[in-house]
Design a protein around this nucleic acid. Structure first.
Lengths: 218, 218, 218, 218
DNA sequence: GATGAATGAGGCTTCATTCAT
DNA sequence: GATGAATGAAGCCTCATTCAT
């Protein structure tokens, strides 16, 4: 996972060492990551300074965050990882209890939008963080890698459904991008606007992409 | 050019002198806005400091920017307005030469994605700026207002097409959000990845939403 | 020689337990001092933080250093003391097996430079530490005291050789400063430049100060 | 505040020049460099923080230093350059009015030590800065380059005097290192100890190296 | 004894903005 | 109008040190 060369320069104390992490340290890290998610979702990445995050986490100084994370990159990487973990844990089982490409795509979309109700801040936070990762950013590789692979899996699934005749012919890559973007935008909207019915929007979005992907018999 | 006419609608509190803008002042503002678009697209909103923008504009000091704009908010508002203007000038005629809701939607999508080739930096810059506008941000109202109204117009158009039977029944609001998000994500991708065929992706996206919106006769 | 006796004079507030030091505690202190010497010689005093030293010593936290030393001053004092001890143990016997002021001065210089081969890190580390001791620094008195007394002894020796007619008339204080400075600079050079012949430089330096001090018969 | 700059303020009656603007910046830089020299000489490099230097320069914030210098490296490089300039301006004419290698070496040493009276803080500051330049430091190249070339020139001069028979045979490199180190140590001592007679010490040092270098048999 | 989490001061740097020229 | 020097507030980060376990 962190096998890439970029992470070799990190401090041993801060770099990912799942094994050598104390329980209390893991707890603090989780606490800080949660606070970061909250702040990013509420105030935006640009204003998510260590000072704000520390305050949200009930810490007395920003030094504490630097103590537990190698730097802002490290924290943001962890934010992305945490949201990915939560999203995966939420979405995957809901997908897997369906069979057939259409039903699974629908389940994927509805579950993804459903996250807006279950974890309202996670998705906006992650979208915001990812929007700020640039090519020159060394942390981009790892964080986006996780996401890209998720996209790749979806592309592969859709390609298979095309071969089996369940889906019509289309460019799976463009479709995957559109699905992802539509979900993220909808979730962000749902979180920001109180009277936005996320569940209904999820069904609408699922309908939308069902129509967009299914084989049209004429 | 059309620069002066559109900006006369700005609130007096935000803009300096809506009507009595000198020609040279308008030119300077345009020059700075262009530089800002370039910097935001290349380096991201977070790194788009006055210093960088001034350098990109060939100005000798950041004071010049502060002199011509009421603040960073004002500049960013103008960036959004400029991109909206350009986008509208590009997309609208291509839409209007079509007739029928389906053809017009297709033209809208293809033209919007086509912006990636015509003005590669404009759309990513605007997406980046809008991602940073928050509820507490006073400039949000106006900047988003422009965008929201564009969305509203599209929602209304789709609703009409539903009434006329050209489009199937769906929530036009969710659809509009999805279309916007998909376009933006595709354009951003197209700009960032050199061997991404924007025109082909535009056609794919148009197909996608054509399937998603059209009346399914069964 | 003055190894133990010198530390018994430390202020009670600075040293923990001058006399009643456990064997393991002494070992820990020595281990830390060695690590400090290594880090200072390699990275410089400015970068010799407790964190770095702890890592070099194989310790898991900087708290250990604070536990064993009253503070950074205390550690640095011990570094100086340790190097002094090592240098004295190396240089003194080589001096004492010579007789006559000229031979002894030569032996002193050659042995001092020879330290660069025997303990490459000790002398640069000490020079670096001493360069950072200032008048307002409370640890200056003691650490420099050790060194000053060494200089005083040498001054006295040279004065005697002047009285006996072996050395010409000169200011022994200036001479002592020059000898010390030349040795330190040469050693530092020798350690930093791999193809610097320390032994040859030692002989050159000894020649230099032999010419500079001996009675010139004309 | 502008105690130093007032002396440099020349002909204010002159019309504004395009270089006058650059001049004010140069004045500020000089002011900051002077303050840095003062602080480094008084408190040591380790404690020469931007905060301290800004205070010594009468500036309201450390941001001002960052505004005028690219970073701490840049400032320190300028410190070294300034001291080199001053030292050269002081030493070179005093050397060049002498003829013969012996007289010139003596003039060089006496003038170098004489700097302690003329510019008491310059030499200690530079010695302290140079002691902190490490191999990994990118600014080392330039700063040390200046110094090394000065040493090289001296080495060449001594080599020539050896060929002409004025100097005895010795390793000019070791000699140059020793001379430099002895001068620096003496100057530092002279500055720190109020009742240290720098002029006398300079003569002593000149004697020392005269004996060390001159051809012995006459 | 030893650990490592916590602290808070201070470091350098960047930023948007103001103001005298 | 234009310039660029000055400002002061954050920003992130490192440090020596303390303390409960």
């Amino acid at each position: 996972m962190e096998a890439t060369s970029s992470s070799t320069k990190q401090k041993p104390s801060a770099a990912k060492k799942p094994s050598g992490r104390t329980f209390t340290e893991a707890a603090r890290r989780a606490q800080i990551v949660d606070a970061a998610i909250e702040v990013i979702a509420d105030a935006g990445y640009a204003k998510a300074s260590f000072a704000r995050i520390a305050r949200a986490a009930g810490l007395s100084s920003t030094g504490m965050i630097s103590y537990h994370f190698a730097g802002k990159d490290d924290l943001m990487r962890e934010v992305v990882a945490e949201v990915s973990r939560v999203a995966d844990a939420y979405v995957r089982p809901r997908m897997e209890e369906q069979s057939g490409a259409r039903a699974r795509l629908r389940a994927f979309i509805e579950a993804s939008v459903g996250l807006a109700d279950a974890y309202p801040r996670h998705v906006p936070a992650m979208v915001d963080v990812l929007a700020h990762l640039r090519d020159d950013d060394p942390s981009r590789c790892e964080a986006l890698g996780t996401l890209e692979s998720a996209t790749d899996i979806q592309v592969e699934r859709m390609r298979e459904a095309q071969r089996s005749g369940e889906f019509r012919e289309f460019d799976p890559r463009v479709m995957a991008i559109a699905i992802r973007a539509a979900i993220d935008a909808t979730v962000t909207r749902a979180v920001r606007e109180p009277d936005f019915d996320a569940a209904a929007a999820g069904r609408e979005l699922a309908d939308l992409f069902d129509h967009a992907t299914r084989r049209t018999e004429r």
